[in-house]
């Protein structure tokens, strides 16, 4: 595929993601992951997981950061050129923000009517649980792979992310530390890096 066609595909993908993300960064991650890992197969599960980790540790919203990173990786991966990578990250980032621009400028105009709209509130009450499911699916896809052979599902672990029992221990420990210990995510990732160096 030519670079121009790939950039166009990247722009369209992130435009759709930007328009359909309701419910914050993790909702956006589930959309990005599905498009980039599952649908287009631009990146592997483990490469995407690494990008999420880096996006979480660096300043800026996680959705924008991962779009910037994915845009770079997709173009660099296809061409081997850093310059193409830079164009890829600009394309993905700007495309992601474009729908917000149009929608927010409309919102500003119809400010009060929008806020008090029962129709909007009611629709969102439906969407929120679905978004919870989508975020859950993003986590599941990074853990297991499901391949359908006709009507028979073949379930296999994502070995790059979970090579052994120690990795499941890390998952459980991090979940507990974040949920009940309220440990800062950046600190958790740094601790996880240290654990990786010791355990592997």
């Amino acid at each position: 595929m030519s670079i121009a066609a790939l950039l166009l595909q990247l722009a369209w993908t992130f435009l759709v993601i930007g328009a359909l993300t309701f419910g914050g960064g993790y909702a956006m991650l589930s959309l990005i992951q599905n498009e980039v890992v599952v649908h287009h197969a631009w990146l592997s599960e483990s490469a995407f997981t690494d990008i999420v980790a880096i996006s979480q540790m660096t300043p800026g919203p996680i959705g924008i950061n991962s779009a910037t990173y994915v845009g770079y990786d997709v173009l660099y991966g296809a061409t081997g050129s850093h310059l193409a990578g830079v164009f890829g990250s600009m394309t993905a980032t700007l495309a992601l923000m474009l729908p917000s621009f149009v929608i927010m400028l409309l919102v500003v105009r119809f400010y009060t009517r929008f806020r008090t709209s029962r129709l909007y509130g009611g629709t969102m009450a439906w969407l929120k649980p679905a978004v919870v499911g989508l975020i859950g699916a993003a986590a599941v896809i990074l853990m297991v792979k499901v391949h359908w052979d006709g009507w028979v599902p073949e379930v296999s672990l994502v070995r790059d992310n979970f090579p052994d029992w120690k990795s499941w221990g890390l998952l459980a420990a991090a979940f507990a530390a974040s949920k009940w210990g309220r440990v800062n995510p950046i600190l958790l990732i740094l601790l996880a890096a240290a654990a990786g160096l010791i355990l592997y």
Partner: peptide, 27 residues
């Protein structure tokens, strides 16, 4: 590579926690 081997499962935990918190609020 070794550091990221430790990080990857933790990233998945960091996706699961906000999901659980959101579920308790909206479901």
């Amino acid at each position: 590579e070794r550091a990221f081997q430790g990080i990857r499962p933790v990233v998945i935990a960091l996706i699961l926690v906000p999901m659980v918190n959101m579920a308790r609020k909206c479901c």
